[in-house]
Design a protein around this nucleic acid. Structure first.
Lengths: 223, 223, 223, 223
DNA sequence: TATGAATGAGTTTTCATTCAT
DNA sequence: AATGAATGAAAACTCATTCAT
């Protein structure tokens, strides 16, 4: 890349360099947002340069969060499109896909868990824009779900959103790796053995309740 | 209350004065943890005094959080014990009870949403103790659920925990009051109209999937 | 103006564009030096371009300050040249002229009041050059004063310089517009009612002491 | 002094420790305000402690400035009270006293010259209070002047204020020690040879114009 | 026990200036 | 000559916590 990014395309590339650096540091870190100084060093840019591309440190991470969720949505969309078999099988396939993705990139949820403090210090207009992008994509994927599972129009997007709420909540309920004491508590382990397992079971239960098995419908819509 | 709390009972009272002050300030505030100076002023105590009762500021709020969740659990327990009618009716009754409680005291979820940053700076032993208290009570209420709904033993506590994860996640997914722009977004409103409505629907779906209607069983258990 | 100022004349014009922009912004501002970015925008030039014409931001404003003082000196010179009547009447006429000029363009004194911080960050040679230009012109006007008021040679320039010192000091002593509280203080108002009034009275007193009325002299120097 | 200043008296002492440290550093420095860290070190206190006594760094120096001017006013008051001889002799005596004081403590004027930037970042109420203290004292000393010089009531305070304005302005007009180039300019030296000399001459001229020699009055006061 | 004075670590952000284009 | 992207120094202030009284 040129030393000075004058072209629009170079600017985008530089922006991504920053996001990549932020992501690597966060993934490697202890759950706090990396300092701007660290991000700049990792990106091999001056601190001031970061502020040409993002208004605040938090804006970087909000953007990162959105992009990671969009990635996940992409996987979900693909999973549904490629799914075969019964309705339950399709759901199952997508859950597998999603669980794998989250297992590979747990920073999505770790970042997500910063929640409130992450959104602080991002100007409302930007927050709106980011949220809107997510909602739009979610709506698209919801339409895919509707089509693939033959759900009433608009059902998929609601179910997806609630699924993500559940995922988010489960992650925060799970004893974190940094909590040796909690993880060792047998009373807790008894009811929350492992995040991935819990994720799968919870989502299965939720989808079961949200989307009745197709054959039930078949029964009521004979001929 | 005496100027110096020597008796065990006075100490407890003073501790509650602090928790009450912290709660009032948080409920009235903008989502940030109130400062120690503010809590001390509200409690009409000196800053140093707070540290005789709590090791860190966060410890105050973690304790507050646990107590608020325990309150909620108490309500849930009572709701199930007092519920009559079909299994679905009992679940419904408990959901109503819970939604009302959360509507009255939204600070439970607002505080909960601070999540990670809240748990920072509380010594592990204390965190463990607080979590354990919650898990123990959750297990008790889970047993009530098992009994009232005639579920297999140990089922109730899992369902409850997942319900709470869903609640937690939904709250964080909901556009916050402080986000005028988000609340005004029609694309978002279309899929997330209102927290209370969303809460009710989501939990209904989840419980439907997690706990098959009793009559289905009734069918298989003929008399 | 051409896009690229190659001709000496174009360069000078562009330099003046910059000074004009700086002046407008300062006059409209709150007393701080406008940022380079703002000046560039106001001048419709790129930031870097400013640095082709001035070494530092402060250099712009020092230059501006000198030019504004030179303007004032021009007015003073003209006032003396055009003055008629007694010595006192001539002095009075020049004071009126000056007070009017300062009333119209208070930014001279507002800028002047930045004083020390303004001179920081201007290289000594440049500072010298600017100051020298002022001193030379002051000497010229002093000569006019000598001639018009029939003062001993070299007297006028001293009196003028001291007058300017007094003006400068009075401005800084006056409660500024931004100081609502000070302006409302009756104890202060009693002794410093209004800058223009104060300016006029103070200078009158000073000139009276510095330049004895001509008739007194006339008396002692009979023909 | 005790480690913790609980008593009112100790607090005042600590406040003075801070002011003293600030003054020493400023007097020794190059004209910039010393950093808070430096002041704290000089005062052998922690940075935070300074903020228990002053709201901002600038507040420290504004306070210092006022106190130094009050000191000067005290000297002036004493000079007039102790002056003997003709009116002119009394004025002369006070000018000597003042010039000596300013020569000993040039930091009064160096600090004063920061002017605008000094007042920035001090809350209006505080600025008002400081200014008011100065005005009140000035009024007192003005009364002394009235009495000693037998001036019409209220004349002294005006003359004093204008004198200070002149002093202030002269200092800023004088080539500073840090300006080697300016000091070496023969054209400037010709008209501004030395601050102390200039100060004395200018003030003499001003007082001559502001306060007519007593014998003039004697003439009009019949025998 | 209660108090409140003292502590000091910790970090984003701005913006004048430089320099590659 | 003009541009505007890149640079990086610089420092006041807060506030949770401690500790002398």
């Amino acid at each position: 890349m040129a030393r000075h990014a004058h072209a629009q395309e170079d600017k985008l590339a530089r922006r991504n360099v920053i996001l990549g650096a932020a992501r690597r540091l966060f993934a490697a870190g202890d759950g706090e947002l990396p300092s701007v100084a660290d991000i700049a060093a990792e990106a091999q840019l001056a601190k001031g340069t970061l502020y040409l591309y993002f208004k605040t440190r938090e804006e970087i991470f909000c953007e990162l969060s959105v992009e990671m969720w969009l990635d996940l949505l992409g996987k979900v969309d693909a999973a549904f499109r490629g799914a075969r078999g019964t309705r339950a099988a399709k759901i199952e396939a997508h859950l597998d896909q999603m669980a794998r993705h989250l297992g590979d990139q747990p920073e999505i949820l770790r970042l997500d868990a910063l929640g409130y403090s992450l959104r602080q210090n991002v100007e409302p207009a930007r927050r709106y824009e980011q949220n809107h992008r997510f909602v739009m994509r979610l709506t698209e994927v919801g339409a895919t779900v509707d089509r693939v599972l033959r759900l009433p129009q608009g059902r998929g997007v609601r179910v997806l959103m609630r699924s993500y709420a559940l995922i988010r909540g489960l992650w925060q309920t799970a004893p974190q790796q940094t909590d040796a004491a909690l993880q060792a508590d047998p009373d807790l382990s008894a009811i929350f053995p492992d995040f991935t397992v819990e994720l799968h079971e919870s989502l299965t239960e939720y989808w079961r309740g949200a989307v009745a098995p197709a054959r039930a419908r078949a029964n009521t819509a004979p001929r």
